[in-house]
């Protein structure tokens, strides 16, 4: 697959259908590619862009492990076709840190031990990020609501909720500075 030259390059199209040209922004970088029309955004991120931070837990939009932010909204990337993201602005877990400094949200996940096996963590972080972008001072119930589509089998969610609440507080403080 060639990300740069679009249709001039050899690409592998398992469905056998006519590939579709696609351009979008992923973690601040311009991406142009030819994609199999049946390919999900999740597979595009992982197999084509090699962004393996976004995980697949069920492939059916039930578990939230594949959550990314698309145009400011947290979505299950396994339910979206890559072809649908034309012109979209996409953020994955790899796009949360600023340069080599991890974000407050990531710091609070570490501090509150909001992860164990870590497999749901990227999706959980993206759902939390989208919530905080929308509501900078959420209530605990709003956090629970925002994370209800993200399964975690390890932590019991309490530390995750604590981390999101602590992030909200720190981010508001930073903003006031």
């Amino acid at each position: 697959m060639c990300e740069v030259h679009k249709n001039n390059c050899f690409i592998h199209v398992p469905s056998g259908m006519q590939p579709i040209a696609l351009s979008c922004i992923v973690n601040g970088e311009a991406v142009a590619a030819m994609v199999d029309p049946t390919m999900t955004l999740l597979n595009f991120l992982r197999s084509e862009l090699k962004l393996f931070g976004t995980k697949e837990g069920c492939g059916e939009g039930e578990c939230g492990a594949c959550t990314i932010i698309m145009n400011g909204v947290a979505v299950n990337s396994c339910l979206i076709l890559a072809a649908e993201v034309e012109e979209a602005n996409i953020i994955t877990v790899e796009g949360l840190a600023q340069g080599d400094k991890i974000s407050i949200l990531q710091e609070e996940f570490i501090e509150k031990d909001a992860l164990q096996c870590g497999f749901c963590t990227p999706g959980m972080l993206m759902s939390a990020r989208a919530l905080l972008d929308r509501i900078p001072n959420p209530t605990v119930d709003e956090v629970k609501e925002a994370l209800a589509g993200n399964f975690c089998r390890c932590t019991g969610y309490f530390p995750i909720i604590d981390a999101v609440m602590a992030t909200a507080e720190r981010e508001r403080r930073e903003l006031r500075k």
């Binding site: 949360l96 570490i110 992860l115 870590g118």
Partner: peptide, 12 residues
């Protein structure tokens, strides 16, 4: 804090 936490929150 758990030793591997940073790798897990950055997608690495």
């Amino acid at each position: 804090n758990r030793k591997e936490a940073q790798e897990k929150v950055t997608g690495q």
